[in-house]
Amino acid sequence: MTSAIDQPTVQLPSEVRMPMLGFGTWQLTGRRAYEAVREALDVGYRHLDTATMYGNEDEVGRAIRDSGLSRQDVFVTTKLPPERAGRERETIAASLAALGTDYVDLWLIHWPPGRDRASIASWRELLAVRDEGLARAVGVSNYDTGQLDMLVEATEEAPAVNQIRWGPALYDSRRLDEHRERGVVLEGYSPLKTTDLHDPVLVEIARDHGVSTGQVVLRWHIEHGVVVIPKSGTPSRIRENFDVFGFSLSEGELRQLDAMGR
């Protein structure tokens, strides 16, 4: 296993470091969420992804406190639901109370609130919340390039992160380049659900490295500089998904996996 300090990170604005491998908590609720997050932290994850709409911020916060880790050692992301546009302050206050912390490391707009300027108004509120120290960095989720540009044109500030569905089958080099050109970190969710883990190319690469096909998919993200947040409530799978730092993919293998998106 790789210790927390050995994990690769990406830099966000204001010198904020974000671990490239995170633990997703979508669909994990109640005791199951608490136990999964405790397991993830025990294994070595130092990046947790939650959201208001997941209904598990209380459990995530309690797991962090019970882990014995310092708050500063865990990168925490939560998200603003689109129906809360116009109630940003109320929402971040509720998230902080549920998590039991004075700040989050990253706050995202979960989905674009609509085609009107509500997204821009929400983005301005996120920037203000960041400036007040309630979030160390702010960003968006499920935005296309045009929507990113709308926010930049309105405020002259790009989101630090855009969290979207991503995986080899969804690979789009142009979209990845568009994020990099704008200084936006691409973060991929549902990496294993968006991938055929029985694909012969993936199976062969996994066999050559003595790892699972899921581990190859996660390593592929990291090799491309894409933050990735696998989710599982199963202890053995939580451990397996974290164990991706002991091998690397060749340029040829990356090209083969990239081709799954064509």
Rank of each mutant, 00 (worst) to 15 (best):
S248G: 10
H224N: 15
R180T: 06
E157Y: 11
T213V: 13
A33S: 11
T145H: 11
F245A: 01
I238S: 05
H198E: 14
R165C: 02
G44N: 07
G188A: 11
V227R: 02
G188T: 04
R115K: 14
W111C: 10
G139N: 08
R207E: 15
M53F: 03
T194L: 13
R255P: 09
A121N: 03
R38Q: 14
A93E: 04
P8R: 00
E240T: 07
A154F: 01
A121G: 06
W123D: 00
E35C: 09
V152Q: 05
A135H: 07
I92H: 02
W107N: 00
T52P: 00
A36G: 08
A118D: 06
S248M: 12
N162L: 08
W220S: 08
T234A: 13
M53R: 11
D149N: 10
S70I: 12
L28N: 13
R65K: 06
R182N: 13
G24D: 04
R89G: 00
G246H: 01
I229N: 08
E156F: 14
G22V: 05
F75G: 00
P112C: 06
Q163S: 09
A93K: 07
T25W: 04
V37A: 04
S141G: 08
M18N: 13
V43S: 11
D149Q: 03
V138G: 02
A160V: 04
R165F: 12
E125F: 05
S3I: 07
T25M: 05
Y189G: 01
D66T: 09
V76N: 03
D208M: 09
G114T: 05
V185A: 00
R84Y: 13
G214Q: 05
A206F: 01
D49W: 09
V43Q: 08
R124N: 13
Y34C: 05
P19T: 07
L41S: 04
G30T: 07
F75R: 02
V227K: 02
D105H: 08
H179K: 12
W26V: 05
D149I: 00
S119N: 07
D172K: 04
I109K: 05
S248R: 15
T101K: 08
W26I: 10
A160Y: 00
G68D: 07
A121L: 03
V227W: 09
Y143W: 15
G210I: 15
L80Y: 01
M53N: 06
Q256I: 04
L192Q: 14
A118C: 07
G246F: 14
T52W: 12
R17C: 14
E156Y: 01
P82W: 07
A121E: 06
S14M: 14
V227Y: 03
P81L: 09
Q256R: 13
D199W: 12
Q11F: 08
A154L: 09
V228H: 13
D131I: 13
D199H: 15
D258A: 11
A128Q: 07
I64L: 12
R46V: 10
